[in-house]
């Protein structure tokens, strides 16, 4: 079976040696079914063991292998080499995050935001397991279903210039997940999450660039979640003014 050669230009940054990042070019033989992650694995195994990057599942589920490929945030495991045939493929660490080494970015800020929105079902009073599960209809599930498909790959943050300019911004994935629980009929934590989502650097910081929804590999629409959260917040604010004793 014939093999083509892909030219991969990868960002290298080794903080113990380098004061600034630079590109290193590799020529990688590839088959039709190989993705960018396969090329990185080939480089690490056969050419340069010092190349550092994250990956795990190799099938677009774990969300570990995000990078900027030719300037666009993508999962390296879901980007076929043959789609770039005839041109050099530039692989850089995801934009808007500090770089730890080569393609590895610091995820700490995102992890803190994820915990901040309390991504679990909050109940005013837990019922014992023997009383059965919290039931939900198909229609109730449909209200939040797409927002529960997030794999925390952070590509939406890499695509968001608002987050790039202000890292305090809660950002697309965390807001989409917060909205997922706000819309969950089993959840009773709206009063806990609303102040977080509507604080100064919450949803109102979003000015509708919309690229977060374009780059999402799982078809989640965080931009929509943010706008829906804005509408809910505004409606609640008006209700609380008009009906101060029972507006919410």
């Amino acid at each position: 079976m014939s093999q083509d050669i892909a030219t991969i230009r990868v960002t290298r940054y080794r903080p113990e040696k380098d004061s600034k990042p630079y590109f290193q070019e590799y020529k990688v033989p590839y088959r039709h079914d190989m993705v960018v992650l396969d090329a990185l694995n080939y480089i690490k195994a056969e050419m340069d063991g010092s190349l550092t990057y994250r990956w795990s599942c190799r099938m677009g589920v774990c969300g570990s292998c995000g990078a900027n490929i030719d300037g666009e945030p993508k999962l390296t495991c879901a980007s076929f080499l043959h789609d770039f045939k005839g041109r050099t493929i530039t692989v850089e660490p995801m934009a808007n995050f500090p770089v730890v080494k080569d393609l590895v970015v610091d995820m700490e800020d995102f992890m803190e935001k994820l915990v901040k929105i309390k991504p679990w079902i909050i109940r005013e009073k837990e019922t014992p397991p023997e009383q059965g599960e919290y039931k939900q209809s198909a229609q109730e599930l449909e209200r939040y279903s797409q927002f529960s498909s997030c794999i925390n790959c952070m590509l939406c943050y890499a695509a968001c210039p608002i987050y790039g300019l202000n890292e305090k911004f809660l950002g697309p994935a965390a807001t989409a997940l917060a909205y997922r629980y706000i819309e969950d009929s089993r959840d009773q934590g709206k009063d806990v999450r609303f102040p977080i989502v509507h604080e100064m650097e919450g949803v109102w910081e979003c000015t509708l660039v919309g690229e977060c929804s374009v780059v999402c590999p799982k078809g989640v629409d965080p931009m929509l979640a943010i706008q829906k959260a804005k509408i809910l917040g505004a409606t609640n604010a008006i209700k609380s003014i008009l009906m101060p004793r029972g507006g919410r």
Binding site: P15, P21, E72, A95, N96, P98, V99, P161, G164, L165
Partner: peptide, 14 residues
């Protein structure tokens, strides 16, 4: 860590 700034011309990228 390497901290990168958003360049003033970011909006010309796409």
């Amino acid at each position: 860590e390497l901290r990168r700034r958003v360049s003033p011309g970011w909006w010309t990228a796409s």
